[in-house]
Design a protein around this nucleic acid. Structure first.
Length: 270
DNA sequence: CTACGTACCTGCCAGC
DNA sequence: TGCTGGCAGGTACGTA
């Protein structure tokens, strides 16, 4: 999926087109997502104004007057802002129809995503239990250090746990650990405060740079206007197994941690 | 509680 | 040219 930068790029792309507009209704072509789309979605949302679009971790929250539409892009989802008569393609599961001929179309081949109407989205267990935002004030090396004491899991799996910190998926976990010089296999509880301070700074800078460059397009992700993201060109380790480390030139190692592809430099990361 | 493994789903690519 | 297996930006759940 889209990780935090791709979701933020999506938010920035759709907000100017949709904020303040009224929802006329919705078309649901496929409701079997990770959570079922409300059977009465159109009736629930019709006639309400979209007040704002927030992001919480990898979730988008479309705040209407009497509740919110919760959206998650899963592994393969994207959103597009289109005229309402745009021909439907395979896996175009939901259209949100706004006034002024504006359609927000949810497309997700693998259907690991979410789109549902909730009256109190912030109280929903999916949202309420999330860890702090990595670009916010509550995230720091001190926080990561405190949270990780006694934990034996590999630091990469710890960093990707949304209950610890939101938004860091497989691409950016690999990149941040390389930038901080930390071996992704190292038990989370055996990393010093000084090194977690480096890691927190690396997470921040990698995510901010990725947002600046429009996110990372690999296969499915495209920006709401159909353009690609260009952070792929800046990836130091993700997808570069066997290639030369950009710092020392040694071949990058490929392993699996928690079932996820992991690439690191055995010379630069300890 | 923690640390795994597995499942969900479709598409694509390498290898036979 | 198929076919098959394995893999993919995520997450939640079951098991020990």
């Amino acid at each position: 999926m889209p990780e935090l930068p791709e979701v933020e790029v999506t938010r920035l792309g759709i907000s100017p087109h949709l904020s303040g507009k009224n929802l006329r209704g919705a078309i649901v072509r496929e409701s079997r997502l990770r959570l079922a789309v409300n059977a009465d979605l159109s009736a629930q949302v019709a006639g309400q104004k979209l007040e704002q679009i927030r992001r919480r971790g990898k979730y988008l929250l479309l705040d209407l007057q009497r509740g919110s539409i919760l959206i998650h892009l899963g592994m393969s989802g994207h959103l597009r802002v289109l005229p309402q008569d745009t021909p439907v393609e395979k896996h175009d599961h939901v259209d949100l129809l706004f006034d002024q001929d504006t359609c927000l179309r949810f497309h997700d081949p693998r259907r690991f995503g979410v789109l549902c109407w909730l009256k109190e989205v912030d109280a929903h267990p999916l949202i309420a239990r999330l860890g702090p935002e990595p670009l916010g004030d509550d995230f720091s090396g001190t926080y990561l250090h405190a949270q990780s004491r006694q934990r034996q899991i590999p630091v990469k799996a710890f960093l990707m746990d949304a209950h610890q910190v939101v938004g860091v998926g497989n691409i950016y976990a690999n990149e941040a650990l390389f930038a901080a010089g930390i071996d992704p296999r190292r038990p989370a509880g055996r990393i010093s405060l000084a090194r977690y301070t480096l890691l927190a700074a690396a997470v921040r800078s990698v995510l901010e740079a990725a947002i600046q460059q429009g996110g990372t397009t690999l296969r499915d992700f495209t920006r709401p206007d159909g353009r690609n993201g260009y952070f792929r060109l800046s990836l130091a380790v993700y997808g570069r197994e066997g290639q030369a480390c950009i710092r020392c030139g040694k071949a990058l190692q490929g392993i699996r941690i928690g079932g996820r592809a992991t690439t690191y430099c055995s010379h630069c990361q300890h």
